[in-house]
């Protein structure tokens, strides 16, 4: 347990801690706020924090972006290649895909919000719940009357 309070350990793990703080801010917005657009924004914050966390795994101290130097014939310069240290390109690729998928889901969510506004005339979660409860109550009373009439 003592190693968790050493400076070296903290310096190596403080980034993860900060990413998680950002993630939890996003989660708090999703859970606490009732406005649906704001919920989507909280989801985006959460998502971007996860991306940063994931990309940070590929970072190498003293490394540079994984783009190779070129020679005069526009081929990769294999001699100059050995001089540099490169960060891991694989997390970058996976996160590129994730960003694009993320914007696709965001746009779908926003379109759903527009439809909800059309049906309920509000985009506040609590108001939508109230309206739904009222609709259910009205339905129950209506069908209760009908079933009484049949008896």
């Amino acid at each position: 347990m003592n190693k968790f309070f050493e400076f070296e350990f903290l310096a190596g793990h403080i980034h993860y801690l900060l990413f998680i703080v950002l993630m939890m801010t996003g989660l708090f917005i999703v859970v606490d706020k009732t406005n649906l657009v704001k919920k989507i924004i909280g989801l985006n914050i959460f998502q971007v924090s996860v991306f940063m966390f994931y990309v940070s795994i590929g970072k190498v101290t003293g490394g540079t972006a994984p783009i190779f130097p070129m020679d005069s014939n526009y081929h990769v310069d294999k001699d100059a290649l050995q001089e540099n240290l490169y960060s891991n390109p694989l997390p970058h690729v996976l996160i590129l895909t994730a960003i694009v998928v993320g914007i696709a889901t965001t746009s779908l969510g926003l379109a759903l919000i527009v439809r909800i506004r059309e049906s309920f005339n509000t985009i506040d979660e609590e108001e939508i719940l109230e309206i739904e409860q009222k609709m259910t109550r009205d339905d129950n009373m209506k069908y209760d009357d009908i079933s009484k009439g049949m008896l």
């Binding site: 657009v37 989507i40 924004i41 985006n44 971007v48 991306f51 940063m52 990309v55 940070s56 590929g58 970072k59 190498v60 490394g63 540079t64 972006a65 994984p66 783009i67 960060s87 997390p91 970058h92 996160i95 590129l96 960003i99 694009v100 993320g102 914007i103 965001t106 746009s107 926003l110 919000i113 527009v114 506004r117 985009i123």
Partner: peptide, 29 residues
């Protein structure tokens, strides 16, 4: 973090397109 490709995708998609989409949603709702 050395992820330059991710950086410009995030700048274009996160700061550009998603902002436009959200402003559009606000205008519609």
């Amino acid at each position: 973090l050395d992820a330059v490709d991710v950086a410009f995708t995030e700048a274009a998609v996160g700061a550009g397109i998603s902002t436009v989409l959200m402003l559009g949603t606000i205008a519609l709702t």
